[in-house]
Structure formats: structure tokens, C-alpha cells
Amino acid sequence: MLQVNNINVYYGKIHAVKDISFHVNEGEIVSLIGANGAGKSTTIHTISGLLHSKTGSISFLGEDITKAEAYKLVYKGLAHVPEGRRIFLNMTVMENLEMGAYSKGKVSSEDLDKIFQRFPRLKERRKQIAGTLSGGEQQMLAMGRALMSHPKLLMLDEPSMGLAPILVEQIFDIIQELNRTGTTILLVEQNAEMALKVADRAYVLESGSIVLSGAGKDLISSDSIRQAYLGG
């Protein structure tokens, strides 16, 4: 579904992503894990078109999207929930969801019902300004907003960041549930344990390069991973 071949991304002179290649098959949950600054976010920013690679290629559903502009990719079925949620804080919950459906034209009440069913808190707070939501509610809004565009591939950047453990569990339950109902997931996480538990496959990034890859359950039991990311 998604094929990333030898991409190199620079922030000015900093070589943030070094010759990375990986792929995501339809129906999978794939995790990119690694420490802060390993290049995970840069990688998915490059996939979603907010950054561009100097070399290599990215294809999505068989189409080359290496140089595509970010806003066009949403129409092709790619959604990206950015790190720090980046919901529109001065707009209402409802307006945020409407923006999520921007690529669909009008907001369908069916989609809205589905989102509210999945995230009942958002229904209660739909008229509230998004900036007044708690961190967990904001993450749910960010995910709900992305789902409004009916993505085929949903990319989530650090969905567990700053959330209480109980909320982290909840978010990961939702991710698995979304996957079961047909959404392919690319997950970027510092919370390696959770990310590996839910993942079919995972890639480990270290200073801009992929150093390890494999099935989630294999990586979680590998010694080097245990030492580096899971605290022994």
C-alpha cells in the first residue's frame, strides 16, 4: 500500500533521515519506534508531503507521491494525525471535525454519528472550543478529525504522548479497533512497548536510519530492543 524507497531528508544542513526504505501492506499496523530525534516524525512528515525527500521515492496505492503537495494526498486516502495533535484550538469541536471532512465536501451525518459513537466525549463537547478540551480529548478529536476523511492509511504520530496510562490503553484499543474495521495504520511512537504490542511489523530508527525490523512480537522479545527501549 505504501512503499518508501531510499529517502533522504534534510532540515537545513541536518541530515535527519538517512536512506530509509520500508513498506506498509494493506490491513497492517506498522510501527516506527525509536528515541526522540531518531527521524520518525520527519519520515512521516515526508510521506504526508509536509517535507520532501532529496532522493528516492514514495508511492501510495501504486501512485508516485514523492513530490506531491500535502493537501492533495488527503484526497487520495492518506491521513496524518500530527505529533502534539495540532487540532484547531480556537475552533469548536464540531468545526474541527468539519475541517477533517474538508476533502469530502459536505459533512455526512453518518460519519459524524460513527465518530461520536467511537468518541462519546466529543459528542458531549461538540459545541465547545477545542482549546478547552483535556489532553486525552484533544487526541481523540485529532483522531476523529482525521477519520472524517475516510483514510485508507492512517498515520499517527505519538498518539500516546503526554497521556495518563489509562488513556494510553484506551487510545491503543481504538487504534486496534480501527485496524480491525479496515484502516491500515502507520504508527510512530516513543512508547515502544505499546507500539510493538499492537504492531504486525515494526521498524526501529536510530539517528535517521533503520537499524532493525521485524514482526512486532519478535522485536518485543529481542534482547537489544529490551535494553534500548523497554528498560531492560
Binding site: S48, L50, Y71, A79, R86, F88, M99
Partner: peptide
Amino acid sequence: RAVSEDKGAAELMGI
């Protein structure tokens, strides 16, 4: 309004 708040996030909505 979305663009005025966050250009990047607005792009990710397809704007």
C-alpha cells in the same frame, strides 16, 4: 480560520 491557526495542520485536512 484553520489556516490562520496552523498552516501545516490545515494542509493535512486537504486545505
